[in-house]
Computed example of a mutant assay.
Amino acid sequence: MGDAIKGKVALVTGANRGIGRAIVDSLLTNGAAKVYLAVRKPESAKEIEAQYGDKVVTLAADVADTASIQHLATQASDVDILVNNAGIMHITSPLSENSEESLMEQINVNVFGLMRVANAFSDILERNKGVLVQLNSIASVKTFGDIATYCASKAAAYSITQGLKDKWSDKGIRVLSVHPGPIGTEMGNSAGFEGAPEATVVSEAIITALNNGDFHTFPDPVAKQIEAAYQSFSDAIITSDISV
């Protein structure tokens, strides 16, 4: 197992709560030198700042705004590990009255947000031989009717993640696609996932996957059930050298 974290500089979008906060904790516990907390409201990171002092730097950023992310990149040009965790989920089926609006909003954050982050930091990651960690979901490979618009946005994000892996393969940039199932966060609880595993299950799986050089990680028990069925397809198609 490698040591992909020690001494590295990381940036986490949506770092102030839930899975993002757990990722910050795991990165620092495993030896990261500094973590940028990229959040929409800097005041929301005060507790993390009090805990870690000068090991964290809070930066205002909104993945839904291109200019904001471009400015973020100018402030964090030393990033080695870029974790795009920020995302939104609406409880919306394809038959909901607001389904079109819901899907567009989720695509703007969950898909275009990833593209904004990737484009803004591409040169930085190439220069630093860095890694992009993208928080996708089991919803990127399995659709659930009541959150179908969220699933569609995550499926699109997973496609973009695969595209980034392909385009960056000769630039020395690694990509990790993270696929949690139900997790006991504020977002998860709002979707009825009370009692689900804690966010540390995801953050520790990310550390392991980074050290192993993996492309996928399916962290929790529900996700691992899907991984077991998906693995052969992934090996034969997703991570193979098929070209068109």
Score class of each variant (00 low, 15 high):
Phe193Trp: 06
Val141Leu: 10
Ser243Lys: 15
Asp54Arg: 09
Ala120Asp: 00
Arg174Val: 08
Thr208Phe: 03
Glu194Ser: 07
Gly192Arg: 08
Ser232Pro: 11
Glu49Ile: 10
Ala10Lys: 08
Ala15Thr: 11
Phe144Gln: 12
Ser68Trp: 05
Ser77Thr: 15
Lys46Met: 10
Ser234Ile: 12
Val141His: 07
Ala32Ile: 05
Met115Trp: 00
Thr185Ala: 06
Ile207Ser: 05
Ile48Ser: 04
Gly172Gln: 06
Ile124Arg: 00
Ala15Glu: 06
Thr239Asn: 15
Gly87His: 05
Asp146Tyr: 12
Ser102Arg: 03
Ser93Asp: 08
Asp241Met: 09
Ala64Phe: 01
Val202Ile: 10
Gln231Tyr: 13
Asn98Gly: 06
Leu11Arg: 01
Ser159Cys: 12
Tyr36Ile: 04
Gly31Leu: 02
Asp3Gln: 15
Ser68Val: 13
Tyr158Asp: 13
Leu135Ser: 00
Ile81Gln: 06
Asp214His: 11
Ser159Pro: 06
Cys151Met: 06
Thr239Glu: 14
Gln75Ser: 15
Asn108Glu: 10
Lys46Gly: 02
Asn84Thr: 06
Ser159Asn: 13
Asn212Ile: 09
Leu103Ala: 08
Val79Tyr: 05
Ala156Met: 09
Val117Arg: 03
Leu176Arg: 07
Ile237Leu: 14
Thr74Asn: 15
Ile160Leu: 14
Phe121Tyr: 00
Ile91Gly: 10
Lys6Ser: 14
Val57Gly: 07
Val109Arg: 00
Ile160Tyr: 12
Lys224Asn: 07
Ala148Arg: 10
Leu59Arg: 11
Ile160Pro: 01
Lys171Met: 09
Gln225Arg: 15
Gly130Glu: 00
Ala223Pro: 04
Lys55Phe: 02
Thr74Ala: 13
Asp54Ala: 10
Val12Tyr: 04
Asp214Glu: 15
Asn119Ser: 06
Tyr230Trp: 13
Glu105Val: 02
Asp220Gln: 01
Met89Asp: 09
Pro197Asp: 01
Thr149Gly: 07
Asn84Asp: 10
Ala120Val: 01
Gly130Lys: 00
Ser137Lys: 05
Leu176Ile: 13
Asn189Ile: 12
Thr208Pro: 01
Ala76Leu: 13
Ile160Ala: 13
Val222Thr: 14
Asn136Gln: 04
Ile69Leu: 14
Asp78Ile: 11
His71Asp: 15
Thr74Phe: 10
Ser122Asp: 04
Thr74Pro: 07
Asp166Cys: 14
Ile48Gly: 03
Asp3His: 13
Thr185Ser: 08
Ala236Ser: 14
Glu101Trp: 09
Leu72Ser: 10
Leu28Tyr: 01
Arg127Gln: 05
Leu135Met: 03
Ser153Thr: 10
Ser159Trp: 09
Phe218Met: 12
Trp168Ser: 07
Arg21Asp: 00
Ala50Leu: 13
Asp80Asn: 15
Thr185Gly: 07
Met89Phe: 11
Val39Asp: 02
Gly163Cys: 09
Gly7Gln: 07
Thr217Asn: 08
Ile107Cys: 04
Met104Gln: 14
Leu132Ile: 11
Ala223Leu: 05
Thr58Glu: 04
Ile183Pro: 02
Asn212Asp: 14
Ala152Ser: 12
Met1Ile: 12
Ser137Asn: 03
Ala73Leu: 09
Val57Ala: 11
Val12Glu: 04
Pro182Asp: 08
Thr200Val: 11
Asn85Val: 13
His90Met: 14
Ser159Ala: 14
Ala156Asp: 03
Val202Glu: 01
Val24Met: 02
Phe218Asp: 06
Asp220Ser: 05
Ala209Lys: 12
Ala157Gly: 08
Asp54Leu: 04
Ile183Ser: 03
Leu11Ala: 10
Arg17Ile: 10
